[in-house]
Amino acid sequence: MKNLNKIFFSALFFFFLNFIHSEEINRGLEIALKADDSFSGYGDSKTNLKMMLKDRKGLVTERVMEMKLLEVPEDGDKSLIVFDSPRDVRGVAVLSHAHKVGSDEQWLYLPALKRVKRVASKNRTGPFLGSEFSLEDLSFQEVEKYSYEYLRDENLDGKESHVVKRIPLDPYSGYTKQIVWISKSNSLIHQIHHFDRKSFHVKTQTFSGYKKYLNKFWRPSEIHMINHQTNKTTTLFFQDMAFNTGLSDKDFTQNSLKRSK
């Protein structure tokens, strides 16, 4: 009888624990879905990106590229990035078809050889063009690609924020977890802490200069990434962002990759 009691109470305890846990998961997901609102229904967009890389000694180099995005409502979004500078990579382009379930598809265009090369999407975790961003950081972050857990509320630099933990479901992600600060007032992401495979806090990403487009879609004008291991930083500037530019599926095919300039 005593044993039975023990089993009953421990079962109740675990049930309760699980209940709290699922509550946090639900709340985390809810916050994430709200943050994603600004990203659904945008249709398509075009923007110029400028990357400023700064090393430990303060040496600065620049990268310039153009990015096109197309929303695919039932699946992941499509993106096309074409490099403009440095000059030796001018014309190199990356086409990605993200998928809500399963690995993304990715192709690289090498203009010197006129070659389209399919690449394993696993190779998205390394530094992108020598910057502190990986292709994973730059690609579209579908809600379905993570599991969530609400952690706490916190004031971050004067902004009341929800703090949510998200765990990438992609086994090839470069991160084991990410802690995301989402503003309570407008559901915009302000900061992400990235934890690497060894669960070290390797990078901190901050978003600033949010602007509203078409009265609905909030986009940051600057994203800053600091690598805590190397003290190198990269700042990404979004310039001339435009929505409803008339892009369609046809602009995100291998043929369009071949003529991207």
Binding site: K122, N123, T125, G126, G174
Partner: peptide
């Protein structure tokens, strides 16, 4: 085949 080891020996190198 082609295979890439990303970040060998905990470095930036692939």
């Amino acid at each position: 085949f082609e295979y890439t080891q990303v970040g060998i020996l905990s470095s930036r190198l692939d």
